[in-house]
């Protein structure tokens, strides 16, 4: 009967949805591990605001990256069983991955002063295969999150006596902001985050201004004054 065939179709739906549900549970278990590792790493990295010696902190944090990478490999493995469904479950690890990216890029910046690229980030996480890649938007959002850390970092570094820090951060952030402007962003989450970067930039400019107007220089001498005048 009609009612019976209805029942049968829905029976099938239920089976499929339950399968998808249990897949999701497996994903979530891994994601929760990622989240917890990230949190721990972030917590110890945040000691940079207290001006603890950075290399040590970075060393400790780096050791966690491999743990993260292993988790992402587990994720990749799970999804390999369901080809073409990466984006069906993407929402389950998006936000955690964005935080991971912000962590990685912040660490990289502390070490090198430059921006970790998408490819490099993906490699570090083992997300560089075509089936299980690092979503570009997630990478970019993570970079925005990283930018949010910088004003606080600058403020605390100056308090700790590093008067050259604002200049370095301002240059980096200005370049980063300019690079972002090359992107044609839709009216979405990434756009909103990028709009927020403007405030980071403004805050760093203010800190730089505070240091500059008081003539505070890295070595107690008028370093680079001519350069500044040359630029104006």
């Amino acid at each position: 009967s009609s009612s019976h065939s209805l029942e049968k179709q829905f029976e099938g739906f239920r089976t499929q949805l339950e399968e998808s549900g249990s897949l999701r549970e497996r994903i979530r278990a891994v994601v929760s591990e990622i989240e917890s590792t990230t949190r721990l790493t972030y917590a110890s990295l945040l000691l940079v605001h207290q001006s603890r010696p950075t290399p040590e902190l970075l060393e400790k944090a780096k050791s966690q990256i491999d743990v993260l990478k292993k988790h992402y490999e587990q994720l990749a493995e799970i999804l390999r069983e369901f080809p073409g469904q990466y984006y069906r479950y993407h929402g389950d690890w998006r936000s955690e991955t964005q935080t991971v990216v912000s962590l990685l890029t912040f660490m990289h910046w502390l070490e090198t002063g430059s921006l970790l690229t998408h490819r490099e980030a993906a490699e570090k996480l083992g997300m560089d295969s075509s089936e299980f890649g690092l979503d570009v938007e997630d990478y970019l959002i993570g970079v925005c999150f990283m930018s949010n850390e910088l004003p606080r970092y600058v403020v605390n570094q100056v308090t700790a006596g590093d008067y050259d820090c604002p200049r370095r951060v301002l240059r980096f952030l200005t370049d980063l902001h300019a690079a972002f402007r090359m992107l044609n962003l839709r009216n979405d989450f990434l756009r909103k985050k990028f709009d927020g970067m403007k405030y980071d930039l403004r805050r760093v400019e203010e800190v730089y201004y505070d240091v500059k107007i008081r003539g505070l220089t890295p070595n107690g001498e008028l370093v680079g004054d001519q350069a500044v005048q040359g630029q104006s």
Binding site: R152, D210, R214, L216
Partner: peptide
């Protein structure tokens, strides 16, 4: 936390000057 840090920063740069 950041309000405190900003206040400390502000005193510091002022003091350094």
């Amino acid at each position: 936390v950041m309000k405190i840090e900003n206040a400390c920063f502000s005193v510091h740069v002022r003091g350094s000057e």
